[in-house]
Design a protein around this nucleic acid. Structure first.
Lengths: 208, 208
DNA sequence: GGAGAGTGGTAATGAGAATTACCCGAATGT
DNA sequence: ACATTCGGGTAATTCTCATTACCACTCTCC
């Protein structure tokens, strides 16, 4: 019952954390090579260097692992972006959007596997995953709407409700990166960034 | 061995065709409500009003059914669009893009289930499905590149290689519709169309 | 250094479905 | 009207995996 005992000099919490990390790493690796659906829990454990049982000590289901990966990636990117943007409070609206795009892309393209994970493997898996997706689209939309309002405030775009536009920008960048991750070798991220920036500005400043 | 015999006055080919049609319809219905992965072959047959066996007479696997649905939808949309565009040979480039968008959207939003099928359920299912996706992205890109060249030829955009831009436009519209299909009730397709048009023009005419 | 509890590995269990074997009834054409 | 062959439904069969029960081992604390 003394659940807090140490083993091999390593406390429980640390061991769990480390196991979890290895499972997450194995998840990224296998989900993006073998594919999420095709990945067996046993394979996951093998790749993480532990037995079948180890998995169930950390996660309920394979889906739970996927959800955590999804959230982690988005959370990380979102934190980066919003932090950078607040530290930029003074700059002009267009420059802010450039930064937004650069920071976001840096986060999700640093490891192409993460892109594949988010934009391909985690699509249509289950209602729970879809719900999470909708959730994150909402957050990103809020962020973009906020920036769009700034653009309008600066007189660079007409004042209007940017909600739909924001949702669509999120969809557009998502789709864009979905294509990119299959062509990683062919195109530099700088070009992706340029296209994304043009796309956002055009959507926000369009007259209608 | 006389495989050509008629039954109930209906020849073999016709019966097969009709069964196939019912299975395809059932596929659209179930894949987009229950979800592709969650749909059992037995359920499919029940919905199509036939027995388990009937399925295997028409398709190898559940995936084969999905592939056919995917191809049909894209083929149909592509035919519409390219036919309309050729019959429009004389008009100015910007108008052609408007038409392109309108016709494509009409095709894929007429039945929101088709949108869900294409942009959610058929993502990341298997290497075969992904390959098909890449294939179609290629075709759509070709079509868009062609139009982009016209825009450039008309002096409305700088001459350059539009391949990457075209791929990204496809990704953007795909992503855009992926979001749309979860918000069907909230936003009219006319707004979607407006955004899409602005996006395409901006991407093609941008200076860099 | 031994008792007791925590850990993790192995292997059994069992559920869920795809796939197929078999059989009954229907339709043809002689 | 009957023999023959096709078509389709039902009901096994089989397989794959997730899940869990059990066991051997290790480490701590007295």
């Amino acid at each position: 019952m003394a659940a807090e005992r140490s083993y091999g000099g390593v406390p429980l919490a640390r061991r769990r954390e480390e196991r979890r990390a290895r499972l997450l790493a194995a998840g990224v690796e296998l989900f993006t090579s073998v594919g999420y659906q095709q990945t067996k829990i046993t394979e996951l454990c093998a790749a993480a260097g532990m037995s079948n049982r180890g998995f169930y000590q950390e996660f309920e289901t394979k889906e739970a692992l996927l959800l955590e990966l999804y959230v982690r990636t988005n959370q990380l990117a979102h934190d980066h972006v919003s932090q950078t943007l607040t530290s930029l409070e003074t700059t002009d609206p267009a420059a802010r959007i450039d930064v937004l795009v650069d920071v976001y892309l840096a986060a999700v393209t640093s490891d192409p596997r993460l892109a594949r994970l988010n934009y391909v493997e985690a699509v249509g898996v289950s209602p729970a995953v879809e719900a999470l997706h909708v959730d994150w689209v909402g957050r990103w939309s809020e962020l973009i709407m906020h920036e769009a309002d700034r653009v309008a405030a600066a007189g660079l775009a007409p004042h209007r409700d940017f909600r739909l536009t924001a949702i669509m920008i999120v969809g557009a960048i998502t789709g864009l990166l979905r294509e990119w991750q299959t062509h990683t070798a062919d195109y530099p991220t700088s070009e992706i960034a340029a296209e994304a920036k043009a796309l956002i500005l055009a959507s926000i400043t369009r007259s209608a």
